Amino acid sequence: MLDALEAFTVVVVGLMVGVEFSVAFVINRILDALPEDSGQLGRSHGGRMLGAVMPVWYIASLALVAVWAVAGWHHPGAGLVVTAGGLLVLSVIMSVLLLVPINDRGRTWTPENRPADWKEQMNRWERYHCVRVAVIVAAFALLAAALA
């Protein structure tokens, strides 16, 4: 049963990492290349859509890692799982304190009501997001290593 939990957790966390990596290095580059206000409208839509899904995914990932850490406490790799859990906690804290406030503002913006500094705010969000991606990639790598 622990083997199934480990595999399921790695898949769930890995998919989350893939989505966040894609946002950072693919989707946002595509949106930046769109003409006129299309990129900003796409970011607002993405903020609404992913803003609804990702919190559940982060918390579910963290919960799965916590269950794995408890269930596998006396198994090899437990320290890696606990460290990965700590990194996921850090990613949630970063999200709540740094990224969500910007996202909450950005998802309501239209070309008519966006603030003058909207691009600077999006650039700040992207910088924080890249750091968060690095954190969750590290967590994922630790979970994968714990399986080995």
Rank of each mutant, 00 (worst) to 15 (best):
L88V: 07
V92E: 03
S38I: 00
Y128Q: 13
Y58D: 03
G18I: 00
V133D: 02
S38G: 00
G39F: 04
V135L: 03
A84F: 01
H45W: 12
A52C: 01
G79Q: 10
V23N: 11
L2I: 13
D3L: 14
S22N: 05
L50V: 07
H74E: 15
S95V: 00
S22L: 13
E120A: 15
I59M: 12
W118H: 10
E126I: 01
V70C: 04
A141N: 01
Q40H: 12
V56R: 12
G14K: 10
V26R: 05
V89W: 02
V17C: 13
G18C: 06
W125P: 02
P55Y: 00
R105D: 12
M1V: 07
D104C: 02
C130W: 13
A116F: 02
N28F: 01
A60N: 04
M16C: 07
T9M: 04
A116W: 05
W73V: 12
M49Q: 04
L97E: 06
A33M: 06
Y58A: 09
L98Y: 04
L41D: 08
G46P: 02
L90I: 15
M54H: 05
C130Y: 09
S91W: 00
L34S: 09
V89D: 01
R29E: 12
P35S: 09
V131N: 06
L147H: 15
L99F: 04
P101E: 14
R132A: 03
F21N: 13
V92F: 10
A7H: 07
V11W: 14
F140S: 15
K119L: 06
G106L: 06
H129M: 03
V56W: 10
N28Y: 03
A145S: 13
P111E: 08
R29Q: 11
C130M: 15
P101T: 00
S22F: 13
G51N: 02
W57A: 14
A66L: 08
V23D: 10
I27V: 15
N123L: 11
M94K: 03
R132S: 07
G46R: 03
L99V: 06
V131M: 08
V92W: 15
I30K: 10
V12F: 15
Y128R: 10
W109V: 01
M54G: 03
V100N: 03
I30P: 01
W109R: 05
M122L: 11
V82E: 01
A148F: 08
P76N: 11
N113D: 07
A148P: 00
R114S: 09
V10K: 15
T9F: 00
K119Y: 00
L98W: 06
V56A: 14
G42T: 04
G85A: 06
S38V: 04
G39V: 12
D104T: 05
A139V: 07
D104R: 14
V89Q: 02
A7V: 11
L5F: 06
L50P: 03
M16R: 07
M122R: 06
A4G: 04
W73C: 05
A141I: 14
V19Q: 01
A24I: 13
L147N: 14
E120I: 06
G72A: 12
M122P: 00
I30G: 10
A146V: 08
V131K: 03
G42E: 08
T108R: 12
H129R: 05
A84R: 06
